[in-house]
């Protein structure tokens, strides 16, 4: 009991008549600030709910994505090439770079080392194409891909400028007659 007495002595606060295995309790009110904090968080939660679901001010998940995605596209607009500029490069440097991209992205896995085609992808060197003859079509095929047939869309992996270069390289392959060329597929280009 002496311990308890000592507690009471150096504690001139309102001790309650609670005693659990020697543990006493004081009748202090909770600190004001913690109660304030509690009320503030409750108020904040009501405002949060009202903002999104009653006033409908806040963007819900899908809208938020659509909006942010739009902003993203605006921000990086510079990367697209206008249709006027969308012509095949013919200079050596660009074609060499195009060839390098062709190797880096492993185009040969499906179209052969020299564009001759293999069991998976079509021959790129003949006069026939599956998805259009002009440069714009080649550009588009590389950019958007042909997912159903296994052609990857490369728009998420490289800039349009690079696509332009690799497409230019592919156009330059036309009529090269490599060995083991695959049989023509698709429409004939004039």
């Amino acid at each position: 009991m002496s311990d308890k007495d000592k507690q009471i002595l150096d504690q001139d606060e309102n001790l309650m008549d609670h005693d659990y295995d020697g543990i006493l309790e004081l009748d202090n009110p909770p600190p004001r600030w913690i109660m304030m904090l509690f009320y503030i968080t409750i108020g904040w939660s009501i405002i949060y709910g009202a903002y999104y679901f009653w006033l409908k001010e806040g963007n819900l998940q899908d809208e938020e994505y659509a909006q942010k995605s739009e902003q993203h596209d605006e921000k990086y607009q510079i990367a697209t090439i206008s249709s006027d500029e969308l012509v095949a490069f013919t200079d050596e440097a660009s074609l060499a770079e195009g060839k390098q991209i062709y190797t880096e992205l492993a185009c040969m896995a499906c179209h052969g080392m020299n564009g001759e085609g293999n069991a998976i992808g079509p021959n790129l060197t003949d006069d026939y194409t599956l998805h259009g003859c002009d440069f714009q079509s080649a550009f588009h095929t590389i950019k958007e891909g042909v997912p159903a047939k296994g052609m990857t869309a490369y728009k998420t992996q490289m800039s349009e400028e690079k696509i332009q270069k690799v497409a230019s390289y592919i156009m330059s392959l036309r009529g090269t007659n490599p060995a083991n060329a695959k049989d023509p597929q698709g429409e004939k280009c004039e």
Binding site: D3, Q7, Q11, L15, M16, H18, D21, G22, I23, L24, E25, L26, D27, N28, P29, P30, P31, I34, M35, F38
Partner: peptide, 23 residues
């Protein structure tokens, strides 16, 4: 249990015990 036992001090606020338990 163990904190007031080890420190040999009374619990600061019985009211706070109740409020924070239920909330």
């Amino acid at each position: 249990y163990y904190l007031p036992k080890a420190a040999n001090r009374p619990i600061y606020s019985y009211k706070l015990s109740i409020i924070h338990f239920w909330s």
